[in-house]
């Protein structure tokens, strides 16, 4: 009896694990299947480097160039990341080098609240709060890459803070006592030793966070303005994720337009795989070489 139960249990665990693993293959296969037919009609160069996106023929022919969307995705992610680093590193420095254990256990869950807020709500607050500010500052519609970057920065903060303050805590435990024994003040040691000692790991976490930012859809879509333009900080732009979300509803199944949207999503996914795998390979190599 116990033996049967156990065999059944192990089988269940095994097959569910296989299912979890296989889901990746399924996603890749079913997105690739709809994406690849595009390249029978549009050359990869025209697709990735073209700047004209005209999915429906209004007399001038169709064209599918996603260059501006790629640039828009990169621009908004990097803007968001830089802003998030600016604030997140400072906050992590405080949490790791100044806060007591009690304050830390109190603040971490509060900061984690940010990770739970739905991205639509971020977009909504961005529209209600940032848009008027940018209009007053002279941006015509108030919607721009910088506004989306700010919203994105807030969304990235919890990931960045938890990753970087964890690294900094380790560096602090190692480096702060000997530094203070040399008479170096806490904050000088924090800035001069803990921060540079954690830099490499922080950069890797930032890379992962940029990946997360590039896949973000709703919040970015709501405040970035969505126009096929080469992104400027105070100009409109459109990300790949927003392009898909906005146009999937109108794309006729199996049309070139439909395949092009899948191809854009496929490219985005592959890019994120490369970022994720690259960083984790780097991390494990550094670990093996005995870094921090």
């Amino acid at each position: 009896m116990a033996k049967t139960a156990n065999r059944f249990f192990m089988l269940l665990i095994g097959s569910l694990t296989v299912l979890a693993i296989l889901s990746l293959a399924f996603v890749i296969w079913f997105v690739a299947k709809e994406a690849l037919p595009l390249f029978r009609e549009v050359s990869p160069a025209a697709f990735f480097l073209g700047t004209r996106w005209m999915p429906v023929d209004f007399g001038n022919g169709m064209s599918f160039g996603i260059f501006n969307f790629i640039m828009g995705t990169l621009a908004v992610s990097l803007t968001g990341m830089i802003l998030a680093l600016l604030v997140g590193l400072g906050a992590s420095l405080y949490l790791s080098c100044a806060a007591t254990q009690r304050v830390r256990t109190l603040l971490y869950p509060v900061i984690d609240l940010l990770a739970g807020i739905p991205s639509v709500v971020y977009g909504f607050v961005g529209l209600m709060v940032l848009k008027p500010v940018f209009i007053r500052a002279g941006v015509k519609t108030g919607l721009c890459v910088l506004a989306a970057g700010i919203v994105l920065a807030v969304m990235l903060l919890p990931y960045l803070i938890s990753a970087s303050s964890e690294t900094m805590l380790k560096a602090r435990a190692r480096c702060l006592p000997p530094a203070m024994a040399l008479g170096i003040s806490r904050w000088d040691a924090a800035a001069g030793i803990v921060l540079p000692a954690s830099a490499r790991n922080i950069l890797m976490s930032a890379g992962l966070a940029v990946g997360r930012a590039m896949g973000e859809t709703m919040a970015v879509m709501m405040v970035m303005g969505n126009a096929n333009l080469f992104p400027k900080l105070l100009g409109k732009g459109e990300s790949i994720a927003a392009l898909i979300a906005l146009e999937m509803g109108t794309a006729v199944a199996d049309s070139t337009h439909y395949h092009a949207l899948y191809a854009a999503g496929f490219a985005l996914m592959i890019l994120l795989f490369v970022i994720n795998l690259g960083i984790s390979a780097l991390r494990s190599r550094l670990l093996r070489r005995g870094g921090i």
Binding site: G215, M248, M269, I275
Partner: peptide, 9 residues
């Protein structure tokens, strides 16, 4: 790392 919009696709 798969963007949620791609999961929709």
């Amino acid at each position: 790392g798969i963007p949620s919009i791609v999961l929709g696709l």
